[in-house]
Simulated scan of single mutants.
Amino acid sequence: MSAQLAAVAPAFTEMANDMVYATLATVDRRGRPRSRMVHALWEWDGTSLTGWVGSVVTPVKRAHLAGNPYVSCNYWDGVERYDTCVAECRAELLLDERSRREGWERFASAPPPLGYDPATIPMWEDGPDSPAWGVLRLEPWRLRVFPGAYARSGGKAGEILTWQAPED
């Protein structure tokens, strides 16, 4: 783990988990982006950062991730603070029984607003065995945290934080 990740990941996790909803973009086979709103939950354990999304399993999402497993997850609080943060990630759609149950429990047991009962969504009313339920695991390769206070103060308050994984 880099010292830079240790400085950026907690700030990203706090900001993203406070906002809850993000725009997640995938890319189709022609390189065109497609965005959708997601309810994401981020976990920082002191050494690694992982994002989780309870996901509707669609043929489009499957095809996009099969062709290009990278996504952009963008948050923006445009109401009061104007904070923004972005996670550029490698995404994996987890569809095995264990991952689906663990993902379901992760969201069902987390405190609100991150936690929610996935069964309240009609297409998932059958629980983690619902064919429409899947879990996206997000492993960031780049993070950016941009506090609105920084922009509002002309760069005198707050700090823009960025981390990028070393090239493979």
Rank of each mutant, 00 (worst) to 15 (best):
S2T: 12
S2P: 01
L5Q: 00
L5P: 01
A7K: 09
P10N: 11
A11E: 10
A11V: 04
E14R: 11
E14A: 15
N17R: 03
M19C: 09
V20L: 06
L24Y: 00
A25Q: 03
T26P: 02
T26A: 05
D28I: 15
R30P: 00
R32Y: 13
R32G: 03
S35I: 14
R36T: 08
R36C: 09
M37H: 05
V38D: 05
V38F: 07
W42Y: 05
E43C: 03
D45S: 08
T47S: 13
T47F: 15
L49V: 06
T50M: 11
G51Y: 07
V53I: 14
V56D: 04
V56K: 07
P59T: 10
P59R: 06
V60Y: 10
K61C: 02
A63E: 14
L65E: 11
A66H: 06
Y70M: 15
V71N: 07
C73A: 02
Y75L: 00
D77A: 12
G78K: 06
R81D: 08
Y82R: 01
T84Y: 06
T84N: 13
C85P: 08
V86T: 13
A87V: 08
C89I: 11
R90F: 02
A91F: 07
L95E: 10
R98M: 08
S99G: 14
R100D: 11
R100Y: 11
R100K: 12
R100H: 08
R101M: 13
E102T: 13
E102D: 15
E102F: 05
G103Q: 11
W104D: 00
E105T: 07
F107Y: 11
F107H: 14
A108Y: 14
S109D: 14
A110N: 15
P112V: 09
Y116N: 08
D117G: 05
P118F: 07
P118K: 11
T120K: 08
T120M: 05
I121K: 05
P122Y: 04
P122K: 08
W124E: 06
E125Y: 00
E125K: 10
G127D: 09
P128H: 14
P128T: 09
D129E: 14
P131A: 03
G134P: 03
R137L: 06
E139N: 02
P140H: 00
P140M: 00
W141Q: 12
R142F: 01
R142W: 01
R142P: 00
R142S: 04
R142H: 03
L143M: 02
L143T: 02
V145S: 08
V145K: 04
P147E: 06
G148I: 04
G148P: 02
G148H: 03
A149V: 10
Y150V: 10
G154T: 09
K156E: 13
A157K: 14
I160S: 12
W163C: 02
A165M: 05
A165S: 04
D168C: 00
